[in-house]
């Protein structure tokens, strides 16, 4: 199902603008993530699509061309996975998964067959008759997904589906969730504040800040070509290189860097993996701390720019704390962005 959103805005009573007019188009079968810090309006947008919140007048929500903005949530045929899962404690796993089908008044035999199908798909066979209270967090998450998917919704909406789990399990289930969503072949939107999660699961990521979509694109595009300072900071933790830009040169306290193109009036950013310890480098820095992380070292460098700069250093040895080192940053690794969105960071 294709989803077209036009002019979706939400003003809360009291005047807080949770969501500024937003338009978005999502192709059938596409998995899109709404990524942003808390309070950026991502959950509000998701709840408006579901029908759990009413947008400001003038909004258009089209499911395959049909405007559903006036339909109540129970008539929209959306599947939703809640952050807390919202599983019904008064029904066993099977009852939860079959509830949506029961609401569609399907014959009992068909409900049973389809519940079995979804249970097999989500590998829940062993838990089918257990009460919800007897399930682990990861199992609940899968039941919530199965329940949302079983009635064959037009779109699957997931609100921070992994955030209730502990870190290790979250990483493990991320891959599982991505695989299941692809297997379902369903249009899906999921909300998260975790950029790794968004990147791992989504085809496209919409980065949101302060009630609007700052940029939407594939994970690669967002990472390599962020359009605003906020996106650069939020996706991949780009660090500002505070200095003076003169044509294609960046003048920093710790030295001068070449830029790939003239960038007057813009702001420069760099990511830790592009900051290299290099005896030939044009920058001079002092090593503040060195942390060994197995595959690489994280080195905090001072003196290059106002704030300390992080560098990811791979190699068999690293400079010592207190040493003075030379540093290089390749011209194409420097992101030059207009600073207009800076306050949002």
């Amino acid at each position: 199902m294709t989803l077209i959103l036009k002019n979706i805005a939400k003003t809360f009573p009291g005047g807080t603008r949770a969501l500024l007019p937003t338009s978005l188009e999502i192709a059938g079968g596409e998995i899109v993530s709404l990524l942003g810090p808390s309070g950026c309006g991502k959950t509000t947008l998701l709840r408006i699509i579901a029908g759990l919140q009413t947008p400001d007048p003038g909004a258009e929500i089209r499911f395959d061309g049909e405007d559903v903005a006036a339909l109540p949530v129970e008539k929209r045929k959306v599947g939703m996975v809640f952050q807390s899962y919202a599983l019904f404690p008064n029904m066993p796993v099977r009852g939860n998964i079959g509830y949506g089908l029961k609401m569609q008044r399907l014959p009992k035999a068909e409900i049973a067959a389809r519940v079995d199908e979804v249970i097999a798909l989500c590998r829940l066979e062993a838990y089918a008759d257990r009460p919800i209270g007897a399930l682990s967090g990861g199992q609940r998450q899968r039941v919530a997904l199965a329940r949302a998917f079983a009635p064959r919704p037009r779109i699957l909406l997931l609100d921070e589906p992994l955030s209730a789990l502990d870190a290790a399990l979250r990483t493990e289930l991320r891959g599982e969730l991505a695989a299941l969503l692809r297997q379902f072949g369903i249009t899906a939107i999921f909300v998260t504040h975790d950029q790794d999660e968004a990147m791992a699961i989504a085809d496209r990521v919409a980065v949101m800040s302060h009630g609007r979509v700052a940029q939407i694109g594939t994970p690669e595009a967002l990472y390599r070509k962020p359009e605003t300072a906020f996106v650069a900071r939020f996706v991949g933790n780009a660090m500002p290189l505070g200095g003076r830009i003169g044509k294609d040169r960046l003048y920093l306290p710790g030295g001068v860097l070449a830029l790939a193109a003239p960038a007057d009036g813009k702001q420069a950013f760099v990511r830790a993996e592009d900051v290299r310890i290099d005896p030939e480098g044009p920058l001079t820095a002092r090593v503040e701390t060195v942390t060994f992380l197995g595959t690489h070292y994280r080195i905090v460098l001072s003196g290059i720019t106002k704030d300390p700069l992080h560098a990811l250093h791979s190699g068999l040895s690293a400079p010592k704390t207190g040493e003075t080192v030379k540093v290089s940053i390749a011209p194409e690794a420097i992101l030059t962005l207009s600073a207009e969105d800076e306050k949002a960071a």
Binding site: A50, G51, L52, P72, V73, E74, K75, R76, K77, V78, G79, M80, F82, S84, A86, L87, F88, Y99, G100, M103, Q104, R147, A148, P151, L157
Partner: peptide, 11 residues
């Protein structure tokens, strides 16, 4: 949230 869950399932 429980009710919202039921509502999205068509109740």
């Amino acid at each position: 949230t429980l009710e919202e869950g039921a509502a999205t399932l068509g109740a």
